[in-house]
Amino acid sequence: MAKVDIKTEITGNVWKIEKAVGDNVAEEEVILILESMKMEIPVSASEDGVILEILVAEGETVTEGSVVARIEV
């Protein structure tokens, strides 16, 4: 069991959170969707796991490189 940080590659606003703590996620599965400069950009799981923490709320602004969620793999 290891904790893995899920980071955003871009600065944007959290538009929609698709997963909740305790949900199973597969690699590439979308955890949340950011909105930046009229584009929707999904943030996905880097590997299979379970959502441990969601660190942002809808409407919140996140900056490039920040951790938005943690999964246990």
Binding site: T11, S36, I41
Partner: peptide, 14 residues
Amino acid sequence: YAEDPAKMFMPSPG
């Protein structure tokens, strides 16, 4: 544009 051509033209605010 404020974007990164190398990353598929992803937005780059700042």
